[in-house]
Amino acid sequence: MKRIVAETAVMLSLAVIMSLSPYYSWLFVLMSIYSLLTLSWLFMRKAGRISMGHSFLFGFPVFLASAGYSFSSEVSIQLFIAGCALSFVIFYIFAEMTGRTAFVFLTLVFSIFVWVSSPKLVFEKGGYLTGGEVGFSFPTISQKELHILTGGTLTLFYLIYRIIGESRAGYFMRAVGDDETASKAVGIDLRKIKALSILLSGMTAWSAGIIYGLEFGHISPEIFSVEISVFPFIASLIGAGNPFASVLSSFGLVYLSKILNSMYPGLMGIVYAAILILSPKIGWWVYVKGKRLDEKAG
């Protein structure tokens, strides 16, 4: 419990320190969005499902909401709720009908499919065409409000993640993640656990999506890009699957992307590619180091 309090205190301190400058406040919001995405990914990972298409869960409801916002706020809210429900159902069906390996492929291919096909959504509004590759506008709020909202959301979902991790449901998720057949044999309801992990993952991702929309005031099909899909995988890989380290690595990756992309646009994409190419080696190295650290701490 002490550790959870200390970790939360570190995050809140970062939120306070970064609120002092407008640029760092903007950066904090961006870092928190990606950290929420990583936490969302970890919820699903806990139950043994590695999603490589998390951009769909993150982007789909807010993409629909932004399309609906072209008509009215009410339509936007209704479409957001429909998007949340639909993305949950789709991921649940994927988890039910596939094994672990096929789930990785299916989510990745599906998110790329949505990325490729979403620019086809174009409609006429007031004599102008909206959508396509440009996307749709989205409402914004003041930076101060956004900073508080983001800091609060990140802290809330981090606490939920840690508290659930230590609860009965969290142990069930871990058991299902380790061995589905054995979990079934001891009476764990696999469907309920999978649904719970996807729901928690979805709630985190949907919140991140809304904050993303509020931060940029605009949603384009790039929200489904492969870079966003693979981001939580990379952050978790560097953070050795530890939630706090993964949140910090998400912060670090976003900061690094700002530095590298300002040096040369697109440079961070090369770093992501290099990490993915070396991921089998990095994963092994991080795992061994993590084990050693655990042994020392023990």
């Binding site: 994409g269 090369i270 993915l276």
Partner: peptide
């Protein structure tokens, strides 16, 4: 690589490397 997933992720990285390289 030692598994299907590792090999697939590596090939995805290679694909992104080509695209970003071309873009740069």
């Amino acid at each position: 690589c030692r598994s299907v997933i590792e090999a697939t992720v590596l090939s995805l990285g290679a694909g992104i490397l080509i695209e970003r390289g071309l873009e740069i």
